[in-house]
Nucleic acid binder design. Structure first.
Lengths: 339, 339
DNA sequence: CTGTTAGCGCCTTCAT
DNA sequence: ATGAAGGCGCTAACAG
């Protein structure tokens, strides 16, 4: 099962076979333009490399070049229902930049997080991406300052590290406005736990959209529940039992929407005819499988990952520091059948 | 933001500071027992390393030791609704073995898959884990034979590579038997696409459980649908409209169960009083949020990942070849409230 | 345009 | 019990 036995082929082997110096080989294999090798020998070198089955030795290259070509991603995201998309985005972008992404799944344990970063630094990653499962404030171990670091879906408590976060307020606005454009005026908002960046932003967006449309936000139409189907069910019940019930719900998360669906159907009401619903998060597993399929606002995980890797990449390529500050990326509407 | 400026501290620095040779430092830092350093200097070395903030250089070590300490995981799993748990399991185990797991997310594209493996081999990974999102037959590019490789959640078309798969048949048996023990005799089975290892195994388990309990399996109680909520809804409707309708459903996937819930509720029936339901897959996002919460059979992703890394690890530690063949790991019942 | 010469940071056999 | 010397595979100045 293992192809050892024969020693791996090195640059020297191909140099010898072609009858040139190792330098020449190195130059063409890394196709650098700052030196010249005759096209003829160049071709011979390439062919020899191919024939011999040459495979570069990353560690040797890293050691000599003082550049690992590695980028680290530390995240708790694996435990979270969200955001493998973030990892995917970061990986896509990194590969395109010729970097290899080292992923450390931390389970959110700070102790382990620190250990993971230490390991990553031993691999001499050139930069670090830290992605969290929920939009919140974080404080990284000081070791994170040893290398350019960017935060994704979270922000630095001390404001020192650059970060990329979703535009929650814009998302809330988009969702609400979509409902307004569908003709709704009484829009209930079943929000998630209020002490979060997500809840605050989405609420603000909801209010702004209403106000812009000339309808004054009523506190009575807003409830906060825990972000679960049960929470959504309860919240929807409360709003549905109002004398003048809303004709639409904006749900703070797709899970909440899942529960709201139950409450609505239980009353013999239909979606979207009697009550329209829009969610938030665009969790495929839920949104695309609810009946009817849920119209929702997407958290731009893939793009956040992409942007993170990209900003890191350009910073590394240029000089050093990432442009500091916080960049926010939009939350697009994903239309399905619940409005 | 970046801690360059001062050159990184090397073994030589600490050797010089303590007044010993680099060899001594190397020995204590790798705490090897095959050589001896006086406990006193040993302590001094350790302290100096600490004070200087020494950080081993993985690439240098890999180059000199001819051993990267890296293991590769290539998977399409990120796109799949399942199995980040597999990644987590493999990572946990690898770290405990002192190996670093390099993850390559391939999106299932074979071309990219090959490129990813090539990159992994350039990093000189000592072994490869290949994890698929669905239980199926795969054929890896020949390059996978260059290094010990193990398949997770899939099996080799040519039977050459060792693999780890879930016990689908056992899972189907467990689910059905659970229903039987709850007193059900007429159990409908809404299975997923029939041309899959999952569907075949689960069906076989269903039949065996029935037979063992003395009830003869009726083909009329088994339907196949696509693995979605819509499919589940349709399948459940068909079975529910039977003259002598089943009192329980075994659903081939949780998504199917999601749709079955709708069909059941739509008829004013209640779960589990009128109709009990058990799913398969244990997709947290669905199973734990359905109302009532879904009792289901779990695919042992975490354990499969763990076992994969473990088998690879012991193989690498010992001589070379992984013990060949296919190991199957059990699918445990996760009881919630739908039975 | 091509080759020579040093290392990169660490491990390891062999002498002391 | 400890240290000296050589090499892992590759890159990058600098000469030729």
């Amino acid at each position: 099962m293992a192809g050892d036995g024969a020693r791996a082929v090195r640059m020297g082997d191909i140099a010898q076979r072609v009858g040139v110096s190792r330098t020449a080989v190195s130059f063409v294999l890394n196709n650098r333009d700052d030196t010249s090798v005759s096209p003829a020998t160049r071709a011979r070198i390439l062919r020899a490399a191919e024939e011999l089955g040459y495979r570069p030795h990353a560690a040797a290259r890293a050691l000599a070049a003082q550049r690992s070509g590695l980028v680290g991603l530390v995240t708790e995201i694996v435990t979270s229902p969200f955001g493998m998309e973030t990892v995917k985005g970061a990986q896509d972008r990194s590969w395109r930049e010729g970097k290899f992404l080292l992923i450390a799944a931390t389970e959110g344990n700070p102790e382990f997080e620190q250990a993971a970063m230490e390991k990553l630094l031993e691999q001499r990653v050139e930069g670090l991406i830290y992605a969290s499962g929920s939009h919140r404030e974080v404080t990284l171990p000081p070791i994170a300052l040893d290398v350019p670091t960017i935060l994704v879906h979270c922000f630095d408590a001390h404001g020192r590290l650059p970060s990329i976060v979703p535009d929650e307020e814009g998302g809330g606005h988009t969702a609400t406005r979509h409902l307004i454009e569908a003709g709704h005026r009484r829009i209930g908002f079943i929000n998630l736990e209020p002490d979060t960046a997500a809840a605050r932003g989405r609420l603000a967006g909801y209010r702004r959209a209403l106000t812009e449309a000339g309808v004054v936000p009523e506190d009575g139409l807003v409830v906060s529940v825990d972000s679960s189907a049960d929470g959504g069910y309860l919240g929807a019940c409360a709003l549905l039992d109002l004398a003048d019930r809303p004709t639409a719900f904006f749900c703070g998360t797709d899970r909440i929407a899942m529960g709201a669906y139950d409450a609505i159907k239980e009353r013999g009401l239909s979606i979207p005819a009697d009550v329209a619903v829009v969610g938030f998060d665009n969790q495929e597993l839920i949104a695309a499988y609810l009946r009817p399929k849920l119209t929702t606002v997407a958290l731009p995980f893939h793009e956040m990952g992409t942007r993170g890797a990209e900003m890191l990449g350009t910073a590394l390529a240029a000089g050093q520091p990432i442009v500091p500050g916080q960049v926010t990326v939009g939350c697009p509407l994903v239309e399905r059948s619940s409005v």
